[in-house]
Design a binder for these strands. Structure first.
Length: 418
RNA sequence: GGCGCAUUCGUCUAGUGGCCUAGGACACCGCCCUCUCACGGCGGCGGCACGGGUUCGAAUCCCGUAUGCGCCUCCA
């Protein structure tokens, strides 16, 4: 049997990272089984629809590399079909009018249950399920009516969604049963919470896909990280390519308990991905990202600086603060302990004459100077670093000086000596 | 309050009755490497929520309690 699943965002704004995790699992499931993945916008409520939201959602999914099959569909387009079904249910006595709305008559006794692909058997007593509004008094169908109907019409085989839908499931099962259709398999994924165990929100940090993109995370890293929230192929593997993710993914190995979003681990993983990039690809990613963020820094210099920072930054967004001294003036750190004066003067004199002005030659020359002054490397180089880069933390000093060039280096050394 | 779901190191997880004196990863701490930072290497800290069962034997099965979360909208 071939599988068909769907991603069903409501167009209320940017794509939330928690939603992305749900979409990712649908994507992994579909691709693993060679099935189809639909993108369905759940807009029963036109008042909340933001025109740009759909474009933004699609753009985010494209950036993440989560592709879908067929055209994007809209719940709103099937509003009439929903109403027809509601009328039929009324005619059959399965639903009734209530102050202008149409309500579904839930069974009064017995239980409604299903075998959840993640949690096993789940059962709910029917007496605890209230009669559900199918169509509002203004004629618009509700989510819990339209969504299951669309699953039927779209021939969705597996409904993979977050656990906050567990309570909706028995309602939707009764709707589907009432229209005589076959039930999909349900799989309720654990929620993704913030570091404090509460619902992931702004105060925890980035929550929108676009925010992660702006911060300089790689889509591959984000996907890898998200895949591990509620799923693991085994006990050790953490870094996995998309192909491996697709190959190894299974609903059976999804855990039922909620996960917390660990920003520190994401940072680490992004660093792993950054370091794994071939040098030229890393450089290109840097150039592209800087361009997107509005930096007009010289691309050629960025490419030359790339190798100096690839092992040292975790996010592309760390680059401006870490290597910005190559692109703009710096304000030396006045707090640097003294004792650097002689070294600065000696370095200035030496570098003024040095040929060739390469990292290798610069290092040899400065080490010789340090030796002459009887200084430990650390004592000798730290004042220079601060003078030249404006920071106590920087890429390799000698490579940085080479890139900066003799003129600028001497000027900064001079400025720091005053 | 009702109904439901969940509960292994701080975090993500492995574990499906004996292989567990519970394994891996992130974070944290220490050491090494070292021009700073980072990378890398080595080591350390740290957990089966609690209480009852079942069993020769339980992190693993059952029951209860506690805690957290979700839903209970003519929101999605």
């Amino acid at each position: 049997m071939s599988v068909r699943v769907r991603m069903a965002p409501s167009p209320t704004g940017f794509l939330h990272i928690g939603g992305v995790r749900t979409f990712l699992f649908n994507w992994l499931f579909a691709r693993h089984h060679g099935g189809e993945l639909r993108l369905r916008i759940e807009n029963t409520d036109t008042s909340r629809e933001v025109a740009e939201a759909v474009d933004q959602i699609e753009e985010s999914l494209r950036w993440l590399g989560l592709d879908w099959d067929g055209p994007t569909t809209f719940q709103l387009d099937r509003i009439d079909d929903c109403r027809d079904v509601a009328q039929r249910l009324v005619a059959e006595g399965r639903a009734y009018e209530d102050e202008g709305a149409i309500r579904f008559r839930m069974p009064d006794d017995g239980v409604t249950g299903w075998d959840d692909a993640v949690r096993g058997r789940v059962e709910v007593a029917n007496e605890t399920i209230e009669d559900l509004v199918l169509v509002r008094s203004d004629g618009r169908p509700t989510y819990n009516f339209a969504s299951p109907l669309e699953d039927v019409w779209d021939e969705i085989t597996h409904v993979i969604r977050a656990e906050d839908h567990i309570s909706n499931t028995p309602k939707q099962i009764n709707i589907i049963s009432a229209v005589g259709a076959e039930l999909p398999v349900y799989a309720h994924l654990p929620n993704v919470n913030g570091p404090d165990g509460k619902k992931l929100s702004k105060r925890h940090g980035a929550t929108g896909v676009d925010e992660f993109r702006r911060a300089g995370y790689l889509a591959d890293a984000l996907v890898n990280f998200l895949a591990l929230l509620g799923w693991a192929p085994d006990g050790e593997t953490t870094i996995m390519s998309r192909a491996e993710l697709v190959e190894r993914f299974s609903l059976e190995r999804v855990t039922p308990s909620p996960a917390q979003f660990d920003y520190a681990k994401l940072d680490w993983m992004n660093g792993v991905y950054l370091r794994a990039l071939p040098g030229d690809e890393f450089a290109r990613a840097l150039v592209v990202w800087l361009g997107e963020q509005g930096y007009d820094w010289d691309a050629q210099l960025v490419r030359r600086a790339a190798p100096l920072v690839q092992e040292k930054i975790q996010r592309l967004g760390d680059f401006p603060a870490f290597a910005g001294f190559l692109f703009h003036d710096v304000a030396p750190d006045a707090a640097e302990p003294d004792g650097g004066g002689p070294m600065l003067a000696a370095a200035r004199a030496t570098l003024a004459q040095l040929e060739p002005f390469t990292a290798e030659a610069i290092e040899a020359a400065l080490r010789a100077v340090a030796d002459g002054l009887g200084l430990k490397p650390r004592q000798a180089f730290q004042p220079i670093r601060v003078a030249v880069t404006g920071s106590r933390v920087s890429p390799g000093l000698f490579e940085s000086i080479e890139l900066l060039g003799r003129e600028t280096t001497l000027a900064r050394l001079a400025a720091a000596s005053r």
